Amino acid sequence: MKKLLFVAALFIGLFVNAQETDTEKQARAMELMSKKVEITVDEALFKAVMQNTYVSESPKAVIMGMYVPETFENAKKKLEENTEDQKFEVTDHGEKEINGVKVLYMYGKSTAEGVALDNKVYCYEIDKDTCLMLIGMYEVGVDKKYSDAVNTALNSAIKKQD
């Protein structure tokens, strides 16, 4: 399961510049990482392993949310730059509206622990300097209740900001 969570972390790495040296920005990133994401997860299928991260052991599946210190426009540029990443195969990406909110999305395939995974990444603006990243991953061919639960959880966290 650690490798599966590592793959999920790679998606977050697309949007957060790990080489950032600005101490203030790093401190803000740490603060945002500790912020609770309001997400509805089917607790009969997924268990919380840490704040904002839920897993299913068998079949393998992950739901993760994280606030990131990024503008929407920068997140969009990073998504477009990373669609040819070797760690996963991007099958579709762009912008769409979910729950009345403009969302960046990226769908793709990856492998972790020898298991082929379908991946969904959503990113949307919280304020001018913050986005919310949502990641859902599940085994290819998984029982529909798991893929539906991932989709429901991701969509539950996408809300208009006041």
Rank of each mutant, 00 (worst) to 15 (best):
A112S: 09
T130Q: 14
G13V: 02
K36L: 15
D42I: 00
D148V: 06
N155R: 07
K128H: 06
P59E: 07
G141A: 07
N17C: 14
G65V: 01
L132W: 04
Y105R: 14
M33A: 15
E57H: 12
M64V: 12
F88Q: 03
M64N: 00
Y122D: 09
L10E: 12
A149F: 02
V37K: 11
T130Y: 14
V140I: 12
K25D: 15
K96N: 11
P59W: 12
K25E: 14
A116T: 10
G108S: 05
L14D: 01
L132C: 11
T53P: 06
E97T: 14
N74K: 13
E73C: 03
E125T: 05
L45I: 02
L132A: 01
A27W: 04
P59R: 01
M133C: 14
D162P: 15
A149W: 00
K36R: 14
T83I: 15
H93F: 15
G108Q: 04
N82H: 15
V37A: 06
Y122S: 08
G136P: 12
K60R: 10
E38I: 09
C123N: 13
T23V: 13
T71M: 05
K35G: 03
L14A: 02
I39D: 07
F72G: 11
A48M: 14
Q51T: 06
L14N: 04
L10Q: 15
L104P: 11
L45W: 07
K128Q: 09
N151W: 04
G94D: 06
V16N: 04
G141S: 09
A48G: 06
E20G: 09
Y54D: 01
K47T: 01
I12Y: 03
K47S: 03
S58V: 13
I135C: 11
F46Q: 02
E31K: 10
V121P: 02
